[in-house]
């Protein structure tokens, strides 16, 4: 029993805290403060509402609507961000030129341009995907950039001394060096991508998770609104933990670093 607790204490304690949080929330609004449905809801109502949205198929449709631009924008961010970051790291002049400009963009709250993006690219998939791309691309750029900068020249020399050519340097040294950096960026980009989806749909949409949250909020159906927020939280955690798990399995040598 002790051994069992020792091995699993992280997930056990973590889950326990979540359960206590919901129980306390439920208890306070049941026996403590009288429930005012216009400003707050409680877990029992939230889960009941969530099941209704699942059964009616509304939740799944909204997830699909929001998921598509997320995939498009995120994949585009990977495809543009990584090569750009690598070139910035490998070619000193490109790095010096672009670093300040891109840092300024990265540091500013880009969601502010959401209305413009929607005007330019429309309320459909294109507009949302563009906004997601704009927010997600920077972690990929800067993490690949930092990754290339941290390539160990000794390893480059070692591979060259055994007859390695340019392509071998990429394959054997550079890509394995930047991979952990890129994965860390990917984890960060997920969070920014989810923000972009919601913000895009808050502004202009007739479907999707963000639209639904805004809609339920406007209608004061707070239990349903909280249900959707809960779903977003679960998705965010699933993605982040999934990437973290992939990181551990794919880079066993990092365990000791």
């Amino acid at each position: 029993m002790d051994k069992f607790f020792e091995d699993w204490r992280r997930p056990i304690l973590g889950s326990l805290a979540i359960i206590c949080f919901f129980l306390a929330w439920e208890a306070i609004l049941t026996w403590g403060i009288p429930l005012n449905k216009f400003i707050i809801s409680k877990p029992s109502l939230i889960f009941a509402g969530l099941f209704q949205d699942m059964n009616s198929g509304l939740l799944w449709r909204d997830l699909l609507i929001s998921g598509r631009p997320l995939v498009f924008g995120y994949v585009a961010a990977v495809l543009v961000g990584i090569p750009l970051g690598v070139v910035m790291g490998w070619r000193v002049r490109v790095g010096y030129s672009l670093d300040p400009l891109l840092t300024a963009f990265y540091a500013s709250p880009l969601v502010a341009v959401a209305p413009l993006v929607i005007i330019y690219f429309g309320v459909g998939v294109a507009g949302k995907a563009t906004l997601i791309f704009i927010l997600c691309v920077f972690p990929f750029i800067f993490n690949s950039f930092a990754g290339v900068r941290s390539v160990d020249l000794l390893l480059i020399n070692a591979v060259r001394s055994f007859g390695g050519r340019e392509w071998d340097l990429y394959r054997i040294v550079i890509v394995p060096t930047i991979l952990p950096f890129v994965v860390a960026g990917a984890r960060f980009a997920i969070g920014r991508g989810l923000i972009a989806v919601l913000v895009g749909e808050f502004f202009a949409a007739s479907e999707g998770v963000g639209y639904r949250i805004a809609f339920y909020s406007d209608m004061y159906v707070l239990d349903r609104m909280f249900g959707y927020i809960l779903v977003i939280m679960v998705i965010a955690v699933a993605f982040t933990e999934g990437i973290r798990w992939a990181e551990r399995t794919a880079f066993p040598w990092r365990v000791g670093m």
Partner: peptide, 11 residues
Amino acid sequence: MVFQEFGLLPW
């Protein structure tokens, strides 16, 4: 060559 700082690929 055998390098002073080994030069082994960590991965």
